[in-house]
Amino acid sequence: MTELLQNLIDGLGRGSIYALLALGVAVVFGIMHLLNFAHGELITIPGYLTYWAFNQGWNWWTVVPLIIVSAVLSSLLIERVAFSRVRGASDFTLLLTSFGVHFIVAAGFLLYVSASVKPYPRPGWFADTIAVGSLNIEIFDLAVIVVTIIVLAGTTWLLQRTMFGLALRAAASDFDTARLMGVKSDSVIRGAFALSGFLAGIAGVFWIMREGQVTPTAGINPMLQGVLAALIGGLGSLRGAVLGGLVLGLAEVLLRSWLPVGIQNLTTGFVFVMIALLFIFRPGGLLSVPQVERV
């Protein structure tokens, strides 16, 4: 029982990060049908800045805002340089463009920094735990969960209560009609990328802390988890993205604890198999958005 609770908390902590990443992927997908394979770069780029900042003598108090701001700016920059040029192109083109962007960023760091691992210190409290009854809760997990709840609440408020949120939702459901109402396409797309970057920035803070190091391909894993979680939840559904992230995190942690010792390191493989099964029985994901076939 204790072990299960412990695992649930671990899984929620992990899943919260995935949920933030997935939500960022889903926001951009909703607005321009782009599944952003370059989403992980919003963690790679701040990751390198973190490494640089610590070498300059910064500390986590100053690095955290740096991570968030740089994630937002990177997201906007990538939109401006690459994605704004393929707006409205076929899904095939959009997918490959984002894949290419990932590759350029990764290769750029390879070219100008180095292929080797760049470490930086984790925060002092990283491994601390607090005891609640028989549970040992990592402060890190707790922080992730609390921050995620706050950020999700804020995002919900933004989407439900502000004009920008309304415009974003309107544009995601029917881009042309939203423009007919006067919603500016440039602003709403940039806004979506900024929001996506902000969410990736928050996730990035924790991801970067946990990793303790950065490499040119550091973005691949967060990208994959974000994209998969969005897909598990049902592409196009924001709520689904969050749910997908939590499910993915829980599945990982629970599987790891249930699998026999010998094959525990194959957890990821098993998670993928479970995802494959999910798709075979529920092709649209958990909260699938009905696809209307137009004649």
Binding site: M163, L166, A167, R169, A170, S173, D174, T177, A178, M181, V183
Partner: peptide, 12 residues
């Protein structure tokens, strides 16, 4: 906008 309320549609 089918997923949005009447008020939200008008606001847009």
């Amino acid at each position: 906008f089918a997923d949005m309320t009447v008020e939200e549609n008008l606001k847009i």
